[in-house]
Nucleic acid binder design. Structure first.
Length: 755
RNA sequence: UCCGGCGUCGUCUAAUGGCAGGACAGCGGAUUUUGAUUCCGCUUAUCGGGGUUCGAAUCCCUGCGCCGGAACCA
């Protein structure tokens, strides 16, 4: 239930399309139930967030439910600490599973009963092969496996041994329960996969009740079934497990049959996402913990200061598809800035202070009014900012001999201090080593509040604080964890060596005094610098702030030498000579010579038995193009195993095309009707009045109606978009009830548009 | 190599036989007391080769490339 209202409306995707179609078809009684099924053996990361948003999002959109289920079937890796962190993270992301919190470990009894049932039905057996033997018997991806010598044990013996497994009479690894499927299956997952193994281990929830534990492929689908899940959504690496998923559900004869759908997992540039690598970073102390703000973990993102709104928006924007994809982290960063722009009040802070003395300041400190929000954000509020004779600015905002486009402070130049006065630099003080230690400037009293002096239109603005008033704080500047786009993608290079040593810089910074009351978790924008959050390491008045994300820096970009354009696919030359094509099979060769057809046609025919039988009953090569191009499409897309007509009907159809009764397009419509069982081609033509027309008057009239109704498209055509003619042709044909001769429509249309 | 999946702007993703669209990134301009934001504009793509069709990113054949699958992990 559950997604909060402010969740961005998700654009549709192939999974939502499927759910929508299932609901419309009344599948599962129109019910929608999804689940997010993490194993509690690690922390959630932004890749999980994608799955969470998908599963909870779909449930919310279709009035269904989304369960949170711990897939805890491996006692040796799981831990309640992870359960707690997962619950916290899902909740923090803004989702609510309500009553629907489940644990696979709660199903151990039911799973065990079904395993006994499988044995009783002769669909599972206890196998005593060792692990190495089993893998040897399994064969390889290109060679079939061999049956285990224990495969034909009697039901009684299997039942007895399985019960003894449960009682703890065997050592770990001594035997397993296997599904009895097919050792020769091309899908390795189907070669009698183990479904129960012995583990004399303490489970964090069931304690020492069990010493056998079900494996994923067995437990997961049944858990889905127990929970009456309708759409079991998972990532692509489980694709070959789907066949087994379906087998288990069917073989155990459970009443509820969920269906699995896979989508591509999220990869992000400049970071790593695998549990193994994340664990290695944490355990190897490359980061400070699971919540290190540089990590893509939910805990890390939260500590970094990113709001769940930004993550949800990001997940909505990346979409859901099956392509292997690596999303540019710049998109995440964009979502973070976009979210914080309207949420973080602006304040002044200096990260790398340089002293500025205002030589003509001869009074008490001034109290300036400073709005918290810029003009384009409709929010109220301001604070006082003290201005005095001794200020601090960021070192970056001064250059002794600046280029022309540097609109900041330099000897003899003026700059506006944000919310303050315009100052002019008169003198640069340096230490013995030649480093600048102080700037001596004068202020213009007429410019209080930042008003531009007469005649000075273009004036840079920089941030500053008053030295005597500013707070001394710790600021942690976080950046991308890795310095390369795809860590680990270069052969022979350890991915850990690609960590960016500068992903964290800690500085002592000075911030305006209003931050004295800032609370942990509060976010600010330090003007011109970035977004910051008060970190939980803050102790009393000793503020610690994390940089969430830097502001975009147009000037820095100007300075950077342009990256050479990475362009041009390094693919072209291969296209020169056509690669050797696959030799024709014996069957195809025979077809080719019998019917005098092309290689391509023979191949397509040989691939599809249904097509072959149609051709045989037709006995004429004339129907081959239609068979290969149209009939094949229909039977593939509708997954047909048979059709309610034979080849003679196709010959009849072909004759109708030949004598001009039907256009090719109409023939396709007739074919669809034939598949729907509406009778012979001639009957369908008569019944539906599908006869093709070449009546120019009628066609012209239709074209005129279409052109009148689509003036904009006509304009685009005349403006040079030739492709529009396709759409207009289609529309015109449709206008005649699909009966117009397409070629004629095209000719007339072209003539009409030209004239 | 066997089975399966996937190939659309630099990146992610739409277009379900009929005008290749959007977002991010990039580039240019306007506005700006944040070189931010906002606004406007621009560049850039259907993996190659054949076929079917009036019309193909989409259907068929084929080549190529990438990913996943041989845990008693999930």
């Amino acid at each position: 239930m559950s997604a909060p209202i402010e969740t961005p409306p998700a654009a549709s995707d192939f999974i939502r399309d499927k759910v929508r179609a299932d609901v419309a078809a009344g599948k599962y009684g129109g019910r929608v139930a999804t689940r997010f099924p993490p194993e509690p053996n690690g922390y959630l990361h932004i890749g999980h967030a994608k799955s969470i948003c998908l599963n909870f999002g779909i449930a919310a959109e279709f009035g269904g439910v989304c369960h949170l289920r711990m897939d805890d079937t491996n006692p040796t890796t799981e831990d309640p600490e992870y359960v707690a962190s997962i619950q916290r993270d899902v909740k923090w992301l803004g989702f609510d599973w309500g009553e629907n919190m489940f644990f696979a470990s709660d199903y151990y009894d039911a799973l065990y009963e079904l395993a006994e049932k499988l044995i009783t039905l002769g669909r599972a057996y206890v196998c005593d092969l060792t692990e190495e033997q089993m893998s040897e018997y399994r064969g390889t991806i290109s060679e079939p496996g061999r049956d285990s010598p224990f495969r034909e044990r009697s039901v009684e013996e299997n039942l007895d041994r399985f019960r003894r497994m449960r009682k703890g009479e065997f050592k770990e690894g001594e035997c397993v329960l296997r599904a009895k499927i097919d050792m020769a299956s091309p899908n390795m997952k189907m070669r009698d996969p183990p479904i129960y193994r012995i583990k004399h281990a303490h489970h964090y929830r069931t304690g020492d009740t069990w010493c056998i534990y079900p494996l994923y492929d067995y437990a997961h689908c049944l858990s889905d079934s127990f929970e009456r899940i309708t759409h079991s959504i998972c990532t692509m690496e489980f694709e070959s497990a789907r066949e087994l998923y379906d087998w288990v559900v069917e073989a155990t004869e459970v009443p509820w049959v969920p269906k699995q759908t896979e989508f591509a997992r999220l990869n992000l540039s400049y970071t790593v996402m695998s549990k193994r690598k994340l664990l290695e970073l944490v355990e190897g102390k490359h980061v400070s913990g699971w919540d290190d703000p540089r990590l893509p973990t939910i805990a890390g993102l939260r500590r970094r200061g990113i709001r769940p709104e930004a993550i949800r928006e990001f997940c909505a924007r990346i979409g859901v598809a099956k392509n292997l994809s690596t999303v540019d982290v710049a998109l995440l960063e964009h979502c973070i800035r976009e979210d914080l722009n309207a949420e973080a009040p602006r304040v002044l802070a200096v990260l790398d202070p340089l002293k500025v003395t205002i030589t003509n300041w001869d009074r008490e400190p001034d109290e300036l009014d400073a709005a918290y929000w810029p003009h384009d954000i409709p929010r109220e509020g301001s604070r006082k900012v003290p201005f005095s004779g001794e200020l601090l600015i960021d070192r970056e905002d001064f250059m002794e001999s600046p280029p022309k486009d540097f609109h900041r402070l330099a000897p003899g130049r003026a700059v506006r201090l944000r919310h303050g006065y315009v100052i002019t630099c008169n003198e640069v003080i340096k230490d013995a080593a030649g480093a600048v230690t102080e700037l001596r400037c004068t202020y213009d009293p007429e410019t209080r509040g930042g008003a531009a002096p007469a005649g000075q239109k273009k004036l840079g603005t920089i941030h500053w604080v008053s030295a005597a008033h500013a707070l001394d704080v710790e600021v942690r500047l976080y950046d991308r964890l890795f310095s390369v786009e795809q860590p680990g993608s270069t052969e022979g290079v350890d991915w850990k060596s690609e960590l960016d040593p500068q992903s964290l810089t800690v500085v002592r910074a000075r911030v305006e005094p209003s931050l004295a009351s800032a609370k942990v978790g509060e976010r600010f924008q330090f003007e011109r610098l970035g977004f910051f959050i008060v970190d939980e390491d803050t102790r009393g008045r000793a503020l610690v702030l994390n940089r969430v994300i830097a502001l975009k820096d147009g000037y820095a970009k100007l300075q950077k030498p342009k990256e050479p354009e990475k362009r041009a696919r390094p693919q072209a030359p291969a296209a020169e000579k056509p690669a050797a094509e696959k030799a024709l099979s014996r069957e195809a060769l025979a077809l080719k010579s019998t019917y005098g057809i092309t290689d391509d046609e023979a191949r397509a025919l040989a691939n599809e038995p249904l097509l072959l039988s149609l051709l045989e009953s037709a006995g004429r090569s004339e129907v081959v193009p239609f068979l290969v191009n149209e009939v094949l499409r229909e039977i593939r897309s509708k997954e047909l195993a048979s059709v309610p007509f034979d080849g003679t009907a196709l010959v009849e159809l072909q004759l109708l095309v030949n004598d001009g009764t039907l256009s090719n397009k109409l023939a396709k419509d007739v074919l669809a009707a034939m598949i729907a069982g509406e009778g012979s081609p001639r009957e369908i033509v008569d019944k539906r009045g599908l006869k093709q027309t070449t009546d120019e008057g009628a066609i012209l009239a239709a074209i005129e109606r279409v052109l009148a109704a689509n003036a904009d498209a006509v304009a685009r055509y005349r403006a040079g978009n030739q492709n529009v003619i396709g759409a207009l042709t289609g529309l015109s044909i449709k206008e005649t009830g699909g009966r117009a001769n397409p070629k004629l429509v095209g000719e007339l249309l072209r003539k009409k548009l030209a004239g």
